[in-house]
């Protein structure tokens, strides 16, 4: 198996594990980690694509990954801040069923 194909497969697996974690875990911190895992799957995919031509490396996916990392960090920080506020107010770290009409 060629190296890029291997990385693509790993990327798909990492993304899928992230989706599973996001949907199956109630704890918010785990869900935020799962989202990060999904993001990293996409980044791995992009970096692998950048190498699909053995002679030259395509810089555009690298630029996308760098930008994506910045966004992922901001989104994670924001999500963790919400979790902290929620924990301070309610003592909970997961989303219960809260649907008053």
């Amino acid at each position: 198996m060629s190296q890029p194909a291997l990385f693509v497969l790993i990327a798909a697996a990492v993304f899928a594990i992230g989706v599973y974690g996001l949907l199956s875990r109630p704890q918010l911190v785990r869900r935020i980690l799962a989202l990060n895992l999904m993001g990293n799957g996409v980044f791995l995919l992009l970096v692998a694509f950048a190498r699909r031509n053995p002679e030259t490396i395509d810089p555009v996916p690298h630029a996308m990954v760098l930008t994506g990392i910045v966004i992922a960090v901001s989104a994670t920080a924001f999500a963790l801040a919400i979790v902290r506020h929620l924990y301070r107010q309610t003592g909970e770290v997961s989303l219960g069923e809260d649907r008053p009409r």
Binding site: L35, I82, Q89
Partner: peptide, 19 residues
């Protein structure tokens, strides 16, 4: 806490959508 929960749920859906 109700707004925080609603916001968190919104954020999870939206980030899933973005990814």
């Amino acid at each position: 806490s109700a707004a925080l929960r609603a916001g968190m749920r919104y954020l999870l859906y939206a980030l899933l959508g973005s990814l």
